[in-house]
């Protein structure tokens, strides 16, 4: 029967629309399901993943010592040239010349957070920090020097 089919079609259509409305209606009335994080407000409780690749940092210990030998492995591993290691020659106690890092320049503005430099580093001198609030008023501020002023290489790191 044409009329019966026509009516069936109309009821099925209305039913399918009603199920959709039921679903959105459910979320409209159940505010607990809201998943939005109110970002600047939840700063205190916000915890980034441990391995989150935010920027490259060079950890220094209490004596202002780092583990970077200035071998430039990271510079070679970096696909887009965002690391530049400027080396110098230290003269140690025996009077021998030894290669050391003078300035470890890291350009956050060019970094793609691929993590290849961390992989390449033989002494684990650099690592990825999980900071993420990188916005600055001037892009020159994104060019960072990773080794601290007056820092030197830790004893025993070759």
């Amino acid at each position: 029967m044409f009329i019966v089919e026509y009516l069936k079609e109309v009821t099925n259509a209305v039913k399918s629309l009603a199920t959709g409305m039921k679903l959105t209606g459910y979320y409209f009335t159940h505010h607990k399901e809201i998943i939005t994080q109110e970002y600047p407000d939840n700063r205190a409780t916000l915890k980034m993943a441990d391995r989150f690749k935010g920027e490259v940092v060079m950890p220094h210990d209490a004596n202002n010592e780092h583990a970077c030998t200035g071998c430039t492995s990271c510079e070679l591993a970096c696909p887009n040239g965002s690391i530049k290691v400027i080396t110098k020659f230290d003269i140690n106690a025996d009077g021998k010349k030894k290669k050391a890092v003078d300035q470890h320049i890291y350009r956050l503005d060019m970094c793609t957070m691929c993590g290849l430099c961390i992989e390449a580093c033989p002494t684990d001198a650099i690592k990825m920090a999980n900071t993420f609030e990188h916005s600055v008023p001037d892009r020159n501020m994104l060019v960072k020097r990773l080794n601290n002023n007056g820092s030197k290489i830790r004893e025993g790191v070759e």
Partner: peptide, 24 residues
């Protein structure tokens, strides 16, 4: 993904010979 790879979209987790890190 972020827990394991450290990134959300461009993870760069695969390296020749395996993966970059052990899963979280």
């Amino acid at each position: 993904m972020e827990d394991t790879c450290g990134a959300r979209l461009t993870m760069n987790y695969m390296v020749p010979g395996g993966v970059m890190q052990d899963p979280h």
